[in-house]
Amino acid sequence: MTLLSVRGLSVTRRGRPVLQDISLTVAAGEVVGLIGANGAGKTTLLRAMLGLLSHRGQSSLAEMPARDRGRHAAWMPQAREIAWPVTVETLVALGRIPHLTAGQRLSETDRAAVDRAIARMGLDPFRQRNATNLSGGEQARVLIARVLAQETPLLLADEPVAGLDPAHQISTMHSFTALAAEGRGVVVSLHDLGLALRHCTRLVMLEGGRISADGPPLSVLTPARLRTGFGISAWIGETAQGPVLQPLDVLH
């Protein structure tokens, strides 16, 4: 089942083309990793697909009415904002807003979704803590839990694992894989190519606002593309523990 389809998407900002002619589809069961150097257009692509930026071309998400979109796709922005000292539980429950009608309180279904999200991110001990008093990494996990609580078929996350410790980076990627196994779709922008290689079912690589490669991780992450797209060399190998990528050096 296709959860997102984008055709001919372009974004121009201040007269400069930021994205050009992007076409891609995301199906249920996929964890799509969006990779690319700084400024390649990852965040712009995610926001334009959601309809948060003015764009040309088509995106199935951007064409949805705002309410339906909130029930179809959950969005985790890169900026980790928690404006008020609310409890972790309250913050996670904000993810249920698209499912509520005006004036409606949280139902049993909503509470169950919040509980599942909190359990999935291992936040049970923090439930009643002030979200603003947590460490940066813990706040990131709370915000991921908020996105999970939205329980949408599609999930888009902009660098969700940045700033997490290794254990939580891996477990966050595992929860995305688990969501995909349940029949949902995930699009996640990543800078850690090792994580991208091991945990995504597919990678989309951006270079200068265009898709330069789209396919299975090992076929996208070739030495040539690492050189042109990132300016690095890397050791890539199939091991007994799965594929491994270790960036080695900057190429001039």
Binding site: R47, L50, L52, A66, R67, R69, G70, A73, A74, W75, M76, P77, A79, E81, I82, A83, W84, V86, L91, L94, G95, I97, P98, L100, A102, L143, R146, Q150
Partner: peptide, 17 residues
């Protein structure tokens, strides 16, 4: 409710409808 959603920032609130 809109103000509650804004706790997460303008982008996240807009994406939630």
């Amino acid at each position: 409710r809109a103000l509650d959603a804004l706790t997460l920032g303008e982008d996240a609130a807009e994406a939630m409808g």
